[in-house]
């Protein structure tokens, strides 16, 4: 799998478009999100438009993964209520960032509290995918569940404590 990171800029906002095997996923992410829940997709673009009006962005405002919208998408995918359901949309992740702060959007597959990620081949695949992406953009995944330590290792916290060697 070949992964490239392409910057998609709108003013001070940067979306890191993820090109996976020649397919740019940021558009797919927005399109898929719009298909799953138009209102949430509309809120996302409205939020980005709002960010463009700010002179600065508080890092707290970029905790987008905690927003009800994205979280609703997790639920839509059945991650918590029905962990059997697997939605490829979870692979359609992108980054929303500004200046030194970059956030991951749409990686709900890693956010499970009930099932070990190792028991989920799909989740493990997602985790490795995201870790590769994170390494390429030299950033950390900061949504309270997954982080990249200084050596570039993906660390899943919360209930599961796992380290993935790249």
């Amino acid at each position: 799998m070949e992964i490239k990171i392409k910057l998609w800029r709108r003013g001070i906002v940067v979306l890191y478009a993820i090109e996976c095997d020649g397919v740019v996923l940021v558009d797919q992410f927005l399109e898929k999100l719009y298909h799953l829940n138009p209102s949430i997709a509309q809120q996302l673009v409205t939020f980005i438009e709002y960010l463009l009006t700010l002179e600065y962005i508080s890092p707290d405002r970029l905790r987008f993964e905690m927003s009800p919208g994205i979280y609703a998408m997790y639920k839509h995918n059945g991650i918590l209520s029905n962990p059997i359901s697997y939605c490829p949309a979870r692979l359609l992740c992108c980054y929303l960032g500004s200046k030194a702060t970059t956030m991951l959007i749409g990686s709900g597959g890693l956010k499970t509290k009930n099932v070990s990620i190792q028991q989920w081949p799909e989740l493990l695949k997602d985790a490795l995918f995201i870790s590769k992406v994170a390494r390429q953009v030299e950033t950390r995944l900061d949504f309270g569940v997954v982080g990249i330590d200084s050596s570039g290792v993906l660390v899943v916290s919360d209930v599961d404590e796992l380290t993935f060697e790249l």
Binding site: R10, D27, L30, E31, Y34, P38, A41, Q42, L44, V45, T46, I48, E49
Partner: peptide, 12 residues
């Protein structure tokens, strides 16, 4: 028109 612009245009 990009997908982003289409979604933005669809916002009431």
């Amino acid at each position: 028109m990009s997908i982003y612009e289409k979604i933005l245009a669809s916002v009431q």
